[in-house]
């Protein structure tokens, strides 16, 4: 780890300025990922801008919209009454992530900004286009059991590791950011990027831009929801695949559905086609299976992750069954 300077601004503007004007400066909140990256020599910032004193911790209803400050802790958010009442899917996803100790440190913004857990990204002796553009992809042709089946490219098949983000993608959240050029809003599903030939870019934030909040609009997904995480260990393990399923069921008919997956792509992966297929159908095992099959049509597997297609179909179906049966 290199020597670095450390500042702790108390205003948003000072924080944004500190990073916008310094190429090697990084924001730090909970630090649950950045410190690992610094210790591994993957990220070598010369300045850390600690944003923990910024007033971004609020969780409140603005009209019907749930406003979540970027510095709200994962543990706090998972237990918050507004979340458990209005967006139980998000609470479930949060609790599926990491461990209680990590959730006590990790913030909402930091969770969105966490890097992939691809081993080739962390081991600086191995090739990785995300860490070191044009060095090659270690995972293609390497160990890729945990890797993407959707939206990958020849330069990167890494997956985004978050559980929280899968629920936020499903719930049509919006990301609020501020930056040198002012404030803007980014649909959550447009926040993270696919790798294409620029896998070094995880998201669409510009230099110096800072996440200030996430907003979730009111929706009907307050009851029939389920977050299924399939993993090698019962807790504290990244997803082989995960499914966020939300159904609006009325008179034994699905009015609308929201489906997203984790552990399968470079970003939280919305299953739009499957959602469409479910709308207007009865919540039956067969309809769920058909929707799952539709979702997997664009899947592409690698040497060690071929099981993920079958597992995904079964997991989507299982999550939908669980959601429908609440």
């Amino acid at each position: 780890m290199n020597q670095f300077s450390y500042v702790r601004p108390s205003s948003l503007k000072a924080a944004v300025d500190a990073v916008a004007k310094d190429n090697s400066a990084r924001f730090i909140a909970g630090g649950t990922n950045l410190l690992d990256l610094m210790k591994s020599g993957v990220v070598i910032p010369e300045k850390l801008v600690d944003i923990n004193r910024l007033p971004l911790k609020d969780i409140q209803l603005n009209g019907n919209t749930l406003h979540i400050g970027a510095l709200a802790l994962n543990s706090e958010l998972a237990a918050h009454e507004l979340v458990t009442t209005h967006h139980p899917l998000l609470a479930q996803a949060l609790l599926a992530g990491a461990s209680q100790q990590l959730r006590n440190m990790a913030t909402v913004g930091g969770n969105m900004m966490q890097r992939t857990r691809c081993t080739y990204f962390y081991d600086t002796t191995m090739p990785c286009n995300k860490r070191s553009p044009n060095s090659g992809c270690g995972a293609i042709g390497g160990i890729n059991r945990m890797h993407a089946i959707f939206g990958a490219s020849d330069s990167c098949i890494a997956v985004h590791p978050s559980d929280m983000c899968v629920a936020l993608a499903a719930l049509d959240a919006t990301v609020l950011v501020t930056g040198p050029k002012g404030n803007r809003r980014i649909p959550f599903t447009d926040f993270h990027r696919l790798p294409d030939n620029t896998p070094q870019l995880d998201n669409n934030l510009a230099k110096g831009e800072l996440i200030t909040a996430v907003e979730i609009p009111a929706n009907a997904y307050t009851k029939n929801v389920y977050y299924l995480k399939v993993r090698d260990r019962a807790s504290y393990a990244f997803a082989l695949v995960s499914v966020a399923a939300a159904l609006d069921i009325s008179n034994n008919m699905i009015r609308s559905a929201r489906l997203a997956m984790g552990g399968v792509a470079h970003k939280p992966w919305r299953l739009y086609e499957a959602e469409k297929a479910l709308a207007g159908k009865a919540p039956t095992e067969e309809n769920f299976r058909q929707a799952a099959a539709i979702a997997l049509q664009s899947a592409k597997t690698y040497q060690h992750n071929q099981f993920k297609t079958g597992l995904s179909v079964n997991s989507i179906q299982t999550a939908l069954l669980k959601a429908a049966s609440v």
């Binding site: 081991d123 002796t125 019962a234 807790s235 393990a237």
Partner: peptide, 18 residues
Amino acid sequence: GRFVNNNYADYHVPVNAD
């Protein structure tokens, strides 16, 4: 010839939930 899961997050020692 290198290990790819040489840490507590990726080498899965059972936790209480297991």
